[in-house]
Amino acid sequence: MTLTHQFLKVLCAPLLLAAVAGCTVPETATRSNETPFDPYEANNRGVHKFNLAVDRAFFRPAAIGYTKLIPDPIEDSFNNFAENLSEPGDAANFLLQGDFRQSGISLGRFLMNSTIGFFGLANPASDFGIPETDTDFGATLAKWGFSEGAYIELPFFGPSTQRDAVGVFVDFFTNPLTFAPQRPLENVGFYAEFVERLSDRGRFSDTVDAILYESADSYAVARILYLQNRRFELEGNSGDSYVDPYGDVALDPYADVSLDPYEDPYAE
């Protein structure tokens, strides 16, 4: 076992334990997007600070350099390669979720792209209209009925929840493509994933910068963005979960006769 993996294990073990423990705790109140369940906020904010420092010093400059340096088509190919390596894991998770159809699709995409797609550098499966669908062990846990648990910001990895944190670690350590302690050079999935994240950070750097560095509270904004998007991925949105700005009488400008909200700002 290499030193890096030793270090990773030490770093991750307590987090994993905390996360598993958290998952067994039933959800306290009805979960809503408006009030995130974040009992570890003080801790999380510390991690957020650390992540921002890492981003500012290393990840952001590296990502911007990478996107600038590497021509777009090659960057796309690397991203395809990384996505392709994630397909077997997706297939396994879909299987665990009882979704045989999607599992077959992921496996089929992997076989197709790995062969006629030059080891996954090209993406003929999508060109033939077989859409890619991602999943992960966090989604499997959700399917199995585990609740989301508390919000957690993971070092390096960013926003997560207790359930998703377990998912991240299980995905990472059980996938031979990302975790092969005896053959560190073969952890190709891990490196590919890192390169793909580099590409995303570089390509969307304006948008990510706006969230991380221009927001009045980047922690709270990142939290709400993550939770909403993740819940949408796992459950889709339903009309019942919509916030209703018209429903709150105290907030309803139409209830207030002294105020005409429909003044035309251009008429002045």
């Binding site: 997007n33 408006e34 927001s215 009045a216 509270d217 709270a220 904004v221 709400i224 963005l225 909403q228 998007n229 993740r230 819940r231 949408f232 991925e233 949105n237 919509y242 916030v243 700005p245």
Partner: peptide, 19 residues
């Protein structure tokens, strides 16, 4: 209101404006 991949503009801006 607008939702982009489940991300709600109103709620996100309430968080930002509140901060």
């Amino acid at each position: 209101n607008i939702f982009i991949e489940g991300v709600n503009l109103l709620l996100t801006e309430r968080t930002e404006i509140g901060a």
